[in-house]
Structures are given as structure tokens and as C-alpha cells.
Design a protein around this nucleic acid. Structure first.
Length: 211
DNA sequence: AGTGCGATTGACT
DNA sequence: GTCAATCGCACTA
């Protein structure tokens, strides 16, 4: 680690402490926008991995596409935790999705983290993903989870507690944030609840959605 | 207890 | 560009 990975040299998480809950916007859409440019870091057995968040999607209150829409179930209960908790579930039998819970305790909503610009522990993530190409390490929610070795065991984890997985402040100025419809979502698809770092080559989805 | 279906990915034409 | 793999869960009975 050091200059080459784009992060401040030094020990983690000491140098990049977790965002406090007070820093996180309560509102789901505000949180989705806020998280663009922030760091997502994960401490694995082999070292710290992670990067800058470049793409998110909001699944807000009353959203028919949200997993919380029909109330609490065994799967989605983490969405109802206080903001800043991880909601992780398995999609299509193979890809884990990482969300950050939003709103206040008892309200089910969250933000899906869809893509990272890899910055820390790149060699480790390349092993986790079995690919070399930087662009493919964490472009897409399932790839991101694989790169960071996030699975169902992380469901319910408090990201503000910051041990194995946490959010940290951006160490550089955030660029322009674009907005579009969400990817792979059927109901409420027309709502522009996807946010991305404009110009980033690390965002997922069709080019047309990230002008 | 049985069934249908994804907030996706990787392989392939 | 198309398409099948894969499995936990929500829903129906």
C-alpha cells in the first residue's frame, strides 16, 4: 500500500476511521448520493481491501422494488435497523448484494452499493475475483462483494462500528454525480434512484445510463 | 410442502 | 448482442 493505491499511507482503519452514524444522512436518497466518493474498506485475513464507491442505488420508503416493501421478513430484517447497518443477501443463487440500511430504526429502506474504484489491496481482490483487470474487480454489486469477500455472515453488521467492514470519508474531492434509473429493477423502474460518479470507468451497467 | 423468481454474472453467437 | 446457471426465500395451499 502507499501512494500507488491512491489512499493515504498508514494503518487501517486508524488512518481511515469509520464514518459515524451522525455523519450519515437519514434520508435514503440523500444517503445514496452522499456515499458516492466515500471509501468502503474491508479487513480480510490477508489485508485491507476496498476502494471508492462510484455507484449506488436507493431503495427508499414505500418503494415497490424494495425488499422491505411488504414488511419485515427473515431475509430483510437488517433493512429495518438503524442507518449504517449492512443488509446482505444472495441474488440469483450466486451473487451477494451489499446494502447500507437507511432511515430510522423500524423503517425498512437502504442503499445498494453497486461498484467501487479499487484502491486498497488490489492484488488480494484480484485473487478473490480470479481476474486481473482493475476495471472488472468491483464493477457490479456481485463482483464487489466477491472482491471484498462479503457474504451472508456480514448481514446485520454495524458499518459504523468498523471492524471487518466499514465506510470511511473520501480522501479526495468528489466529482460530479450523475443520476439515472436503477439497473435490473422491475417495479418503480422509471424513478431516477441510481447515482454514479460521472466519468468513472468503474461504474456498471450500459454506457447509456452513465453519460 | 411445493413452486416461481430474482437489486447478476460469465460464457458464448 | 443473447442466455442459462443457481439457491434462498417469499408466497400459495
Amino acid at each position: 500500500m502507499g501512494r500507488a493505491d491512491g489512499l493515504t499511507p498508514g494503518r487501517y482503519p486508524g488512518r481511515h476511521p469509520p464514518l459515524t452514524r451522525a455523519e450519515l444522512p437519514v434520508d435514503t436518497v440523500a444517503l445514496a448520493r452522499y456515499l458516492i466518493g466515500k471509501l468502503l474498506l474491508r479487513e480480510t485475513d490477508e489485508g485491507i481491501v476496498g476502494g471508492h464507491i462510484v455507484e449506488t442505488e436507493a431503495y427508499d420508503v414505500g418503494d415497490a422494488a424494495g425488499h422491505a416493501y411488504r414488511g419485515v421478513t427473515p431475509r430483510n430484517r437488517s433493512l429495518f435497523l438503524e442507518r449504517g447497518h449492512a443488509y446482505v443477501y444472495l441474488a440469483y443463487g450466486s451473487a451477494y448484494m451489499l446494502n447500507v440500511s437507511s432511515e430510522t430504526a423500524g423503517i425498512g429502506a437502504g442503499v445498494l452499493i453497486r461498484a467501487l474504484e479499487p484502491c486498497a489491496g488490489i492484488a488480494i481482490m484480484q485473487r478473490h475475483r480470479h481476474v486481473e483487470r482493475l476495471r472488472d474487480l468491483a464493477r457490479g454489486p456481485g463482483r464487489l462483494a466477491a472482491a471484498l469477500q462479503i457474504d451472508a455472515l456480514f448481514d446485520g453488521l454495524d458499518l459504523c462500528r468498523g471492524r471487518l467492514l466499514w465506510l470511511a470519508g473520501a480522501d479526495r474531492k468528489a466529482g460530479d454525480i450523475g443520476q439515472s434509473v436503477r439497473i435490473g429493477v422491475r417495479p418503480d423502474a422509471e424513478r431516477p434512484l441510481r447515482f454514479y460518479l460521472r466519468g468513472s470507468r468503474f461504474v456498471s451497467g450500459p454506457r447509456a445510463l452513465s453519460p
